[in-house]
Structure formats: structure tokens, C-alpha cells
Amino acid sequence: MSQSRELYDAVLNGNAKKAHEATQAALEAGFAPMTLITESMVPAMDEVGRLFEAEEYFVPELLLAGRAMRSAMELLRPLLATAGEKMSVKVIIGTVKGDLHDIGKNIVASMLEGSGFEVVDLGSDVAPERFVAAVEEYKPQFVCMSALLTVTIPAMKTTIDALNAAGLRTRVKVLVGGAPVTPRYAREIGADGYSESASGAVTLVRRMVAIA
């Protein structure tokens, strides 16, 4: 058995305290940190995404699962660092300038992190120059942008233009999402991908990693 059932259940049920305890117990029982991520947490977050798609789960359950996942990651992250293990794919994420709505972005960030990607969350109301600086600093493979207002989505284009101007555009894949964003708009502004849901964003990143 390479899965910690307790950790899987704790993440699925959004119980942060139990997730922390289960991780502790699993580590003491000899589980490798990376195994806990790939065999317990990733499948649990996949199931959370599936339940959300199936309308069984809603925003509170997603955010609770994300919280549980992060409480387990707090224990695992330092161990991964000392073991020299690296998560292969890095994603930076933020809501665009002028937009403070970050619940959707937080869900995507949790789901990506729970799926084994390293996520740098820049928060909300992120100016194009901050995206550019973060790409230079963290050297991610992906830049994810979210906007919830029709009046703020033009900032997605401004950000892509800024990445172009800084000569960084070809180094990253740009993914966009948020209620008013459409696949067509994503194409028009030159984004590499669009997803209408959080679990769709995970699938998209996985697929693009497989291609790249």
C-alpha cells in the first residue's frame, strides 16, 4: 500500500487538522514525502475536482480541501527541499490589475498545488510589471491569470504585452480564466490556453506539460 487512506480522506473531506495528523503519522510510518503527494494528495484533489464537476461539492468544500492540502504540504515542503527533490513544474498565478476577486484563483492555485505542481501565488490586483518581475525571479513554465470583471479583462492583454516587451513571452505558457473570459478572447490576446473550471486548468497544465 503506497497510499495513506487517512490523508486521502482528510483532504477529500476538507479536514485540515486530520490532514496534518495523517501526514505526521504517515511520515513516522516510513512513507516518502513525494509518495504522499503523488499517491494520496493528488488522487484526493482529483476526486475533489470530480465532485465539484458533478455538482456534489461547492466552493466551501473546494476551499476546505485546499486548506487541508496546504496543512499537509507545510510538513512535506521542508522535507522535499532537504531531500533535494523538486517539483518539476512551476506555475505563477494571480488576478489581473484592478481585480480583487480571488476566490476562483485561490481554488485553481489549490488544485494545481494539490496536483503536484509548485505554485507561486502573487495574490490579487497584480500589475503587469509584477507578473514580469515574478517570471524573471521564479522562472516558471506557466503564468496563470484570472479576471472576474468585464472591465478588468483588458489587463490580461496588457500583461501579455508586457511579457512580450520584456522578451519573456516565449519562455512561459500563458493560461487565462475567469467568468467573463471566453476561449475566443483568450486566442485574440495571444494566450496559450483557457479553462472554464479549476479542474479543467489542472488538466490543461498536465496536457501541456506532456506535450512540452
Binding site: G98, D99, L100, D125, L149, V151, T152
Partner: peptide
């Protein structure tokens, strides 16, 4: 109305 179109 431009100031009302973006945060804050």
C-alpha cells in the same frame, strides 16, 4: 465612470 471600472 472610468475610476469605477477597476479596483479600488
Amino acid at each position: 465612470v472610468e475610476p469605477l471600472s477597476r479596483a479600488p
